[in-house]
Nucleic acid binder design. Structure first.
Lengths: 338, 338
DNA sequence: CTGAAAGCGCTTACAG
DNA sequence: CTGAAAGCGCTTACAG
């Protein structure tokens, strides 16, 4: 075992076994055409030295690495779900997974992180990559699958049916009797944000309820962005009886703001989020929201990437997964239906 | 941009800019001694081609990579917490993070995964590694920090104060009036499992309550391992009034078994876990457990690794973080105190 | 200020 | 069955 210094290399093994590195390589990779006695010698040298081939050197030399990459800009609780799905899809597949995250999240390098990481990994370290929620379009010579793509993205992707999810939310609120329904939008460059807003508008239109631009606020998915917007909406003389936000993080903020303003949820205000993050089940009252299975997004993305890498590119390359309304305590009939 | 095929290399940039790769390398790495006009030419070639240096090639050539590694065998919800802590400790540090997970989790390669992955990463791709819950001792030429080490491990590590945590649990149960307290142990090769059992024994001894070997069951942290053991404990004529398990996963199983047997919790049986995973707050009744901040374990491990890599190895290398009892609905006074 | 050359640890035709 | 040699994409002394 290399205890203190440099790691054990193939040359170390070759020297000890009295053969060339080419032969060691053949043994390590179980190629045919090595005599049994040589194999035994090399094996015991490997054992003795505790040799393990360098991932880096192997990747550089080979075109195929059997490693898939995943690039993300943060680790939220949903990221863990995505990773679980990815790993389950990769079990026994022969592909290992490398996740790359950079530390300058809030630094100058932030913009375009996905493209940069992708380029550094793809083609050498990895055979292909999954990119989670990129801020823009991504390009790569190697196969790529995007989870939650940017708007107008054309690369292979997996995403939840945000349009349908948002539609169901609004229908739920309309059925309860709400007519003034506020909306706090997400970062508009993301397809998800756009579709959720579209669902909001269409569902209102379909019900013959006019869309009041004054009830639409421009958030960016960041919980903090929602606080002033919620305050503004709720300070209006004709304040909404319900607020639907483009994600749960912002919805939880709305709950806080409502409490600060002395409004009871759901008595004075109904609140609905999107995503069904674990916290939404823990708050009091529980948050009504839309479940998109991050696990399945990860699972399907990994499956798609695997087949792209293997060259069998049959099947659709833009998968849309169903969503599901989860009704909890934060929604009810409005006190004074208008 | 390399649209279809091979990625853009440094030679491509060199050719376009009419210089050598050595010069391109100098520009990319902002070394002194390149004329402004050459810099401009190279920069525009890089821009035009969308060149990004290959992580693999750079790692192979350089001794220092400014990338830290993390090796884990699965993605549980606690893994996400660890990762958050690690990332926060690394923010703006100049170190990127690579997480390596292999797909043969349940295959022949399972045993010794941590050592193999470590050897493949350390020394070439990464400057040092964090290993999460290894099954045995790990060795590496490069710096390593272990989260939740194996028993008798001597490498730098970060772990929760499992002994104190388990002690407090037993004291809590004793204070409620329990005297027959069952224990379902974890995988004994892990230091955490051993300490939790030790805490259980010591706290009973300290209170003058004899330890009944018949009340100690040998689980392995896997929820499934707990079901038959719980059944056995609860089938006894002199069944325990409380069961303490070495982790939450097993405790949740005990709750299920109790329900199957028609035992009410906490009326007929008190149950306590360890870890405070999110699910323990969601079950009904809520699970009394011990919180170990996985976030902090990750944070401290990353801090320690960073300083080891940078060569300032002052400070302790075996950090033990405090734990905290979280009392929820699954514990109460025994119906018939003995 | 710039380039030719060696080499990081491997793998793979090509000889023998 | 085995080895010498080239080369994957970079970086870094060493010349000039």
């Amino acid at each position: 075992m290399a205890e203190g210094a440099a790691p054990v290399t193939m040359s170390d093994v070759a020297r000890l076994a009295g053969v060339s590195t080419a032969t060691v390589s053949r043994v390590v990779n179980e190629r045919y055409g090595v005599s049994p006695s040589t194999i035994a010698q090399v094996r015991s040298a490997i054992e003795l030295l505790g040799y393990e081939s360098s991932l880096v050197a192997t990747s550089l030399r080979r075109s195929r690495t059997n490693v898939l990459g995943l690039v993300t800009h943060s680790f939220q609780s949903y990221t863990a779900e995505v990773l679980k799905g990815v790993m389950d899809a990769l079990t026994q597949s022969g592909f290992d997974l490398i996740i790359y995250a950079n530390s300058d999240l809030y630094g100058t390098y932030s913009e375009g992180w996905e493209q940069r990481h992708l380029a550094r990994l793809a083609g050498t370290l990895t055979d292909g990559c999954i990119v989670v929620t990129p801020s823009g379009e991504v390009r790569s010579g190697a196969p790529v699958v995007v989870i939650d793509p940017a708007r107008d993205s054309t690369v292979p992707s997996v995403t939840a049916d945000n349009l349908a999810g948002a539609t169901v939310v609004v229908e739920h609120l309309l059925n309860l009797g709400h007519r003034r329904i506020g909306f706090i939008a997400g970062r508009s460059s993301l397809a998800a944000a756009w579709s959720r807003e579209e669902g909001y508008r269409k569902a209102l239109a379909a019900a013959g309820v006019p869309v009041d631009p004054g009830l639409i606020a421009r958030g960016d998915f960041n919980p903090e962005s929602a606080a002033p917007l919620a305050r503004e909406l709720l300070d209006r003389a004709d304040r909404p009886t319900a607020i639907f936000t483009a994600n749960d993080g912002m919805a939880l903020k709305v709950l806080e703001v409502a409490k600060d303003l002395g409004l009871r949820v759901p008595g004075d205000l109904s609140v609905v989020g999107f995503d069904n993050i674990p916290e939404s089940a823990l708050v009091e009252p529980g948050l009504t929201t839309v479940d998109q299975s991050m696990y399945r997004l990860g699972y399907e993305a990994a499956r798609m990437l695997k087949s792209l890498v293997c060259g069998d590119s049959e099947g659709p390359h833009q998968i849309v997964l169903p969503t599901r309304l989860v009704v909890r305590g934060s929604t009810a009939e409005p006190r004074n239906p208008m």
